[in-house]
Computed example of a mutant assay.
Amino acid sequence: MRTFDEMAGVAGGSARTVRPCQPRSFGRDWPSFWRRLRTRRALLRLSDQALADVGLTRAQAEREARLPFWQL
């Protein structure tokens, strides 16, 4: 496997290995997807004070809730 530096054509530097992205199996991730969907919807039901307690603004909560459940 080629290193990052070899692929970029850069001499010297770090010897990090670049690995191809492997697709995840959706079958084992469904519980995570459902949990993510539920928690994002729960953000919308929180009051402004509760959101402030967890360090979020209303705009940040709405932006997170609009993300698809499969996206981190």
Rank of each mutant, 00 (worst) to 15 (best):
T17N: 06
G27W: 12
A11Q: 13
S32V: 06
L37F: 03
F4L: 12
C21F: 13
P20T: 08
R36T: 14
L72G: 09
S47E: 01
G55T: 10
G9F: 01
R40E: 10
F4Q: 11
F69K: 03
D29K: 15
V10P: 02
A61G: 07
C21A: 14
G55P: 00
T57H: 02
V54D: 08
R38S: 06
E64N: 10
Q60K: 13
L72E: 14
R41M: 04
D5Q: 07
A50H: 05
F33L: 15
Q49F: 00
L72C: 03
R41K: 07
S25L: 13
L37C: 05
G27H: 12
E62P: 00
T57A: 03
D53K: 09
A59M: 01
G12C: 10
G12P: 02
V54G: 07
L67S: 13
D5A: 14
R38A: 11
G55E: 09
G27R: 15
G9R: 00
L51P: 02
P20Y: 13
F33E: 12
W70T: 09
G27A: 13
P68N: 06
G13V: 06
P68E: 07
P31T: 00
L56Y: 01
R16S: 14
S14E: 14
L56M: 09
Q22V: 11
G55M: 00
L67W: 09
F69D: 08
A59P: 04
V18P: 00
P68M: 03
R35Q: 09
E6H: 01
T57C: 06
Q22H: 12
A11M: 08
R28D: 15
A52V: 04
V10G: 01
R58A: 05
R41Y: 03
G27N: 15
C21E: 13
A65T: 06
S25Q: 13
R38D: 01
R38G: 00
F69A: 03
W34R: 13
A61Y: 06
D48V: 04
E62T: 00
R19W: 10
S25C: 13
R28Q: 14
A42T: 06
L46Y: 10
V18A: 10
R45N: 07
G13T: 08
A15N: 13
A42E: 02
R16F: 12
L67G: 10
C21V: 15
